[in-house]
Design a protein around this nucleic acid. Structure first.
Lengths: 224, 224
DNA sequence: GCTAGCCTTCGTACTTAGTACGAAGACTGT
DNA sequence: ACAGTCTTCGTACTAAGTACGAAGGCTAGC
């Protein structure tokens, strides 16, 4: 019953590719992408840097894997069911996942080796649209539209100067100084009278846009 | 009439912050963000690496400046005129600019020090929405929606495995292999029967989504 | 139980990149 | 001509990715 490589006597278990990738994910989540170095990863795993390279070929391979792990967390739509509800569910799930892993959105741009979870994801969304009755052309339009919105929203969330409903004022300090000069009056007005009001949460904006988009797609589906 | 620091005798002109930033921009455009190093930048400028640091405090400052230079290229809407036309124009301009500087979209996520062009941009778009009659809440909704779409679209364009209408098949090679296995049938069908058809250009998808969004906003303005 | 050979881990060191520090050179006004 | 300042640069330290090959440990067959 003893695992190979683990003699049960308290020795460190064998390093696996799984443990490397999980460690990388948790490091990125905890301290950001910049803190994910081979050395820091090795330390967290309790091994020396070069040991990591027995499990992965390069850091690039780790980053590709991370993107796919993030995709795997997104709830898939079910083709054939109410497409609006399914795609809405998927979009909300994607937003939440990308907000949980803020660093991920920045990786999407540089990685062009989609993994299996990524491809599965694409395939299922396309299947859902086709099953709903969208033509190939409309499917392409709809998919580009929905995904642009989801990714763009996540990108904006990731680059907000503040982190969430809390801690708004202090990090935005230098920006406020720039705005205080009196240029940008409309921006200042919106910021102070709206964005910085207690209870405002940018994430809440997501639903409005998503519903507007799905409404538009629904209309274009019935009209043809 | 001789510039200070340039004695007219063929000496190399004094290095300016302008020349540093322009050099950085052209390097990033030509060879990508990864190729933009202080050393490569210095070489292109005909100086030694540390000379650059007399003009900028750090590489981070260069990256912040690059983002602002890109924003400065985007055509601004004119508040008070036909808002739909103005915001449409701005969105198309933004897409073109971000497609021209593919590396820029990746910077948006990491930089949280907006520059003057960025702030001016935000201010003008907000002014345009307010002048069109949108309430503060609707302005926030509309702005988040439009920008999410524009940025997300640019992000997808930047991460496409192929570069444009040309050169589709070869770079996508390893992806095709994965898809060939028979999983992902819908993705394969869409790809072969639609995306890879001659004449298809992803950039053309932009108009559909933008119009749908502007239609929806217009409706919510007249009803709301 | 013993050893040949593979599987894992790691030590060392090379390369690229950002940049701190202070010296050297160039240019200014007096 | 000279002092003070502005620009440029030489040197070198640190962090990070990773090539190379050795060292240690485990397994199978004798």
């Amino acid at each position: 019953m003893t695992q190979p490589g683990n003699d049960g006597s308290g020795r460190r278990p064998r390093l696996t590719r799984e443990r490397v990738l999980q460690g990388a994910l948790s490091l990125a989540d905890a301290h950001g992408l910049a803190a994910l170095t081979i050395r820091s990863l090795a330390q967290q795993l309790g091994v020396k840097p070069m040991t990591v390279y027995y499990q992965v070929a390069s850091k690039d391979e780790i980053l590709d894997a991370l993107v796919d792990m993030v995709f795997a967390e997104i709830e898939l739509p079910v083709p054939g069911r109410d497409w609006r509800k399914e795609l809405g569910k998927r979009a909300h799930s994607a937003r939440r996942v990308l907000a949980r892993h803020r660093w991920a959105i920045g990786l999407l741009e540089s990685r062009s080796r989609p993994g299996p979870a990524n491809l599965r994801h694409h395939d299922t969304v396309i299947a859902t649209l086709r099953a709903a009755g969208f033509s190939p052309a409309m499917t392409a339009h709809a998919y580009a539209l929905i995904d642009s919105y989801v990714y763009g929203f996540a990108l904006q969330e990731a680059s907000l100067p503040f982190e969430g409903p809390e801690s708004v004022g202090n990090i935005a300090e230098p920006i406020m100084e720039l705005m205080a000069a009196g240029d940008y009056p409309h921006l200042v007005e919106m910021t102070t009278s709206y964005y910085l009001q207690p209870g405002y949460d940018f994430a809440d904006e997501f639903t409005f846009g998503l519903d507007l988009i799905l409404d538009g797609l629904e209309a274009s589906l019935t009209q043809g």
